[in-house]
Computed example of a mutant assay.
Amino acid sequence: MPREPRRHRQSLRRRPLTFSPFARAMAMATLSKKARREIIQEPKLQAKDFPTSSGNGFPNHGKDETEQSHSSDSEQFEGVVQADFAFFDPKPSDFHGVKVLLQTYLDNKHWDISGFVDLILGQPTVGTVVKIENDEDDGVYSVVSALNLGRYKNSKCITELKDYLLKLCQDMNVIDKLKSLLAEQAHDVGLMVSQRVVNLPPQLLPPLYDALFDEVEWATEDEPTEELRSSFRFKFYLIISKIYKHKNADQIKGTTKSGDEALIFPKPEDEIFLELSSWSFSFPLHSQQVTTNELRNYRLMGLVMAVEASKVPIFRKQLHSLIDE
């Protein structure tokens, strides 16, 4: 049955979203000379004030580029704005919005991204899109899903994604493990796809991931065939994301006197995933990165992680603790 939209009302105001340790530089980078916001208790946001997938205000969403301003640089955002965010099953009409969110998912690679979006939208029982309720533009602000690499092994987009990862992995301690997950173990691997606009309220993250993992569990019991039920019994999750890595990251332990950290996580959950991962590797990206004083010593990097599905309960608990603190 179609899922009833679940409302998540959030408040936003003039200062960056900052919660330890990921957001300081990223928030300043994406909100410099614009409306600066922080989450407060009682929101008041009109849909037109948010970037949408059909408007110029929508960020070129790889987390590595400055979002385009939805007000001029000279304007100052005043007051409080309100929005009712709701979770929905993916549907075909979400194609454009989801594709915009995923446009730098594999850096600047030319690949079958349309086919990839079709896979996500063709799996409505496991996956969520976040929208503003009753928004005329029907803009998509986040997409979360998990695709079985074995089930979709013959899809062009999955073949291209696998080849992309294998060519980029230069870590000899990881390459054989990666090959195994992408080949003989592929049926046990869920490719976790999680992309969103940079200023999505962080309070949405715990229920968003809770929804994903709950749906995966339900699918192992509720899908109509054993083949489909089996395809959601993941043993591993493969995650492709982005980080900012300090140029002297290998020498940094903790935080430097200047306040620099070895890694900055544009998405706070990635720090938890990395800590829980069985293995990971990073690689340079070519897509344009934010250039600010705060990030002058950092380079935008791709990050690939493998996380055992058995670690999901730990992840969920730690994510709630991080966002609620």
Rank of each mutant, 00 (worst) to 15 (best):
P2L: 00
H286A: 12
V193M: 05
P16K: 07
E75G: 06
D324V: 08
H70W: 12
P2T: 00
L102D: 09
S32H: 14
F236E: 05
M301F: 12
L106A: 09
S20R: 13
W279A: 03
S145N: 10
F88D: 02
S114N: 11
L228A: 05
T18D: 10
H187D: 14
S72T: 12
D260M: 07
A23S: 11
M28P: 01
P202W: 08
P2M: 00
P268F: 12
M192E: 14
M172S: 12
L322C: 05
L181S: 08
G122K: 00
H320L: 07
E227V: 06
S54V: 10
Q76P: 05
A186T: 01
S278C: 08
F19K: 09
K99M: 08
K311A: 10
K177F: 12
K162R: 13
E227N: 09
A211V: 10
A219N: 03
M172Q: 10
K177N: 11
P124L: 01
L181Y: 02
D214V: 11
V312I: 14
Q10V: 15
K317Y: 09
R233G: 04
K317H: 09
P268K: 09
P59M: 00
L12M: 12
S69P: 03
N154I: 07
T128A: 02
D94H: 10
D118R: 13
N108D: 13
I132T: 04
N60G: 10
Q41M: 11
G259E: 08
D163K: 01
S231W: 09
T225C: 07
V290S: 11
K44F: 13
F265C: 02
L168W: 00
L161S: 02
H320I: 06
L228Y: 08
A186D: 05
S54R: 11
V304Q: 02
L178Y: 04
P124D: 02
R196I: 06
V100W: 08
Q68V: 15
T128R: 01
C157G: 01
D222I: 03
L165P: 02
T125L: 07
P224L: 12
Q10K: 13
A306T: 06
A29Y: 08
F87R: 05
E4P: 01
R9L: 01
I272P: 02
L149Q: 03
G190S: 06
Y237K: 02
N293R: 15
D163P: 07
S145T: 11
P92D: 07
K99W: 01
A183E: 14
E271V: 08
G150V: 01
E227R: 10
S241M: 00
E261H: 13
L166R: 07
T255C: 13
G57M: 05
I240A: 05
D250W: 06
R14C: 15
K247F: 03
E325V: 12
D188F: 10
S258M: 12
Y141E: 01
L238Y: 07
V143T: 08
Y152T: 00
F232C: 03
N199W: 15
K311G: 03
R229W: 08
K99R: 13
F95V: 06
P59G: 04
E261D: 11
Y298K: 05
D112P: 06
F265S: 04
T52M: 06
K48L: 11
S69N: 14
N108A: 09
V129C: 00
H61T: 15
N148V: 00
Q251A: 15
D137H: 02
S20C: 08
I272D: 05
D112S: 07
A25L: 11
S71W: 09
I158V: 06
I264Y: 03
D188K: 15
V174K: 09
A219R: 12
